[in-house]
Write a protein that binds this DNA or RNA. Sequence first.
DNA 1: GCGACAG
DNA 2: ATCTTGTCGC
Length: 233
Amino acid sequence: MTPVTAQIPADWPATEERARAVQDGLRARVVLDETGPPPGTGTVTGVDVAYDDERDVVAAAAVTLDAATLAVLAEATAVGRISFPYVPGLLAFREIPTVLAALDALPCPPGLVVCDGYGRAHPRRFGLASHLGVLTGLPTIGVAKNPFTFAHDDPDAARGSTSPLLDGAEEVGRAVRTREAVKPVFVSVGHRVSLDNACAHTLALAPGFRLPETTRRADALCRAALRAAAYPA
DNA sequence: GCGACAG
DNA sequence: ATCTTGTCGC
């Protein structure tokens, strides 16, 4: 598949201070009072990004699955220049331009978008999944592989067990055990989806592996796109 | 001040 | 994220 080329917007923040100001300005647009589409119906779209910092190349993939069968319905990739350094709390500024280009290149409208990383469980309540949701208007959730800002207890060993990610008494996300006795994933709301529903989607998308099928497919695809872009045939 | 820190 | 071999297990 031929990747599209992503452009970095002219007004993209160049400093950490300005990036944090963008997050503070957009945070109020997050919609938290919708439940979102039920698991197992319609489509779900996974997005992921791979980098070659040496060559200043970034590749993103968007993969749409049938939510009931998890069959791949559509794929798209985009490549571009790296738009921001990795700074914990500012991941969105590194990933979003290329992810948006990949989503735009899909032949069909995306379904609920599953991001690699956090949404609301973020130092300023505005992680990658929240940001992508606000910019696209799509329902989004974040499923991260590692803990970030908030403390949590280890969920019970059974698949489906959860434990809250707590900011004081407030539950901002959940550690979700998708495979028995295997390290949990960390789920938080992005935009227009409830936490209960985000966790239900995560379990429905991960019947056999720790990570949701959406992120597994998107991860494999963006890595292939990066290789193709960094080492042309 | 020091360490920790999604990808 | 990415650098990297073999190896244990289904």
